[in-house]
Simulated scan of single mutants.
Amino acid sequence: MHLGKTYKVSEFIAWTRRQIYLLLAVGTVPVLLYQVLGLRWLTIPLTVVGLLGTATSFIVGFKNVQTYNRTVEAQHLWTSILNSSRFWGASVGGFVRSPIDARELIDRHVAWLTCLRYELRSARPWETMEKASNVEYRDIYRIPERETPIDDELRRHLSNSEHAQIHEVRLSLKATQVLWLQSRALRRLHDQGDLSLTTYIELNKLQKEFIDQQGRAERLKNYPYPRQYAIINTLFVWAFCVLLPFGLLKEFDKLNDGISGLMQGCMVWLVIPFSATISWMYTSLEQVGESTENPFEGSANDVPITLIARTIEREMKEFIGETDLPVLPVPVHEIIL
């Protein structure tokens, strides 16, 4: 998540510069064919290109709305996890008699958050973090889940026996396994008489909420924006970008009739910068939508799940009177995850 007022124009241009280079090349080829080789028939009516541009605008806008909705849903989901976790911490701190048992329930919940965020940060084939522009930009900020192994994090929150048990399962099942351990611990405390029936029922209801929230997060992670819409969006954008220079050739050639001096007969060359600029607007919108599509992949526009998880850990440990609190992540170049 970007915490600054806005991205700098220089950052945005650097992020999209590979598209700019390609668009300049796409605009240069028709001009060379038209102006240098004399293929004056090689034009397309601007009306046709305009109709394609209108259709492309609708498709790009539709995708960006849908991908933005995915990010908003992810933000709402982790806000719900934050609120439910606060209630969990308050309930455990207020109703569990033994401070040791309360500490274990809190730590186990933090372990669940840790497993969940590591699962959500793991890569998927359709994600875009391995694109050259994103790999390059990723170097200016931190992705905590890629810096610290999950086992090092879990050792802080689980007993040796529980850690060994969680270590054996694959990453996609670790969070579910921790919830299972938590349910067993609640049942044990109830059977021992350390947890009243009412509190036991309420904490189990919260466990169900956590399972539901985990499922919603996994749906956003494991089910991408439909691929048929993604490919149609890309095809339409690049069809427009390729055809646009051909539609501008004759229009700029007409400008030579009213021009004298140095630019006389050379106005067609302006097709290159103007077509690249117009096309860049479309490709940039597509790239922004693509970067918003997967809210947990580790991009600069991600939902800050590490920050939220650390905030939950600090608050819950304060509930039970601990003073050794974890340090919250700090933004790097105004980006925090």
Score class of each variant (00 low, 15 high):
139 D>S: 15
333 H>C: 09
26 V>K: 02
138 R>Q: 15
208 K>G: 10
231 I>W: 10
169 V>M: 06
246 F>Q: 05
48 V>G: 00
255 L>V: 12
322 E>Y: 05
47 T>Q: 08
15 W>A: 04
105 L>P: 01
233 N>V: 04
73 E>D: 14
242 V>Y: 07
187 R>E: 14
245 P>M: 05
301 N>P: 00
124 R>K: 15
67 T>V: 06
249 L>Q: 13
10 S>I: 11
265 G>I: 06
5 K>Y: 10
71 T>Q: 09
146 R>V: 01
154 L>V: 10
275 S>T: 06
250 K>G: 09
103 R>Y: 03
129 M>K: 12
270 L>A: 12
172 S>P: 00
218 E>Y: 04
236 F>V: 09
190 H>V: 01
69 N>G: 04
287 Q>I: 00
205 K>A: 13
84 S>W: 00
137 Y>K: 10
21 Y>C: 08
290 E>N: 14
138 R>S: 15
34 Y>N: 09
190 H>G: 06
278 I>N: 07
44 I>E: 03
214 Q>K: 11
89 G>H: 02
278 I>G: 03
125 P>F: 04
160 N>W: 04
172 S>G: 11
160 N>P: 02
170 R>Y: 08
314 R>L: 11
8 K>I: 01
38 G>K: 05
259 I>L: 14
273 P>S: 05
195 L>R: 01
55 A>F: 15
133 S>D: 13
34 Y>L: 07
20 I>C: 01
99 P>N: 11
255 L>Q: 13
181 L>V: 08
54 T>L: 15
92 V>A: 04
78 W>L: 07
309 A>Y: 06
69 N>I: 01
331 P>H: 04
247 G>Y: 05
60 V>A: 14
199 T>F: 06
158 L>I: 08
194 D>V: 00
291 S>H: 07
61 G>N: 13
9 V>E: 11
205 K>I: 07
42 L>I: 06
53 G>A: 14
58 F>Y: 12
282 Y>T: 07
112 W>P: 04
229 Y>I: 08
176 T>F: 09
225 Y>E: 13
286 E>W: 07
305 I>K: 01
53 G>D: 10
130 E>Y: 13
236 F>W: 15
330 V>A: 12
299 S>D: 10
